[in-house]
């Protein structure tokens, strides 16, 4: 069976219009036509060079990025330390204010405690 493909002019029209759907569907599945379109749509070398030049990052990008990430990490670490302090303070306050935490969850055995403190002297 011979595969049928749109002519180059038809593919060029598809580039212009994006249609019709029948051609679009064929292109999606046809490696041969994709290769033709790759060739038809290719940007010339001068334009590619210009695109590369136009999108060239600033010369000091690496240095700026190194500096920027260092600052971010230090800020995060400082903020984390602050949060840790807050958490410790909150836990302490909660321990003071919460009677259950103050008394403990387990019921006290006062006699046993006393025995322990006496060290068996009785």
């Amino acid at each position: 069976m011979t595969a049928r493909h749109p002519k180059r002019q038809r593919l060029q029209r598809w580039l212009d219009t994006g249609g019709p759907r029948r051609v679009s569907n064929h292109i999606e599945q046809c490696v041969h036509c994709q290769e033709v379109l790759d060739e038809l749509s290719a940007l010339d070398e001068g334009l590619v060079a210009d695109l590369q030049a136009a999108t060239t990052p600033p010369a000091d990008l690496r240095e700026r990025t190194h500096g920027g990430v260092d600052v971010r990490l230090r800020n995060e670490a400082a903020f984390g330390s602050f949060l840790d302090l807050f958490t410790i303070g909150w836990d302490f306050t909660r321990a003071i204010l919460d009677p259950e935490l103050t008394d403990g969850d387990e019921p006290h055995d006062d006699d046993a405690t006393a025995d322990h403190i006496d060290g068996g002297a009785r």
């Binding site: 212009d16 292109i27 994709q34 379109l37 290719a42």
Partner: peptide
Amino acid sequence: KTRLFRARK
């Protein structure tokens, strides 16, 4: 591929 071809155009 198809979107790139159209993007170039």
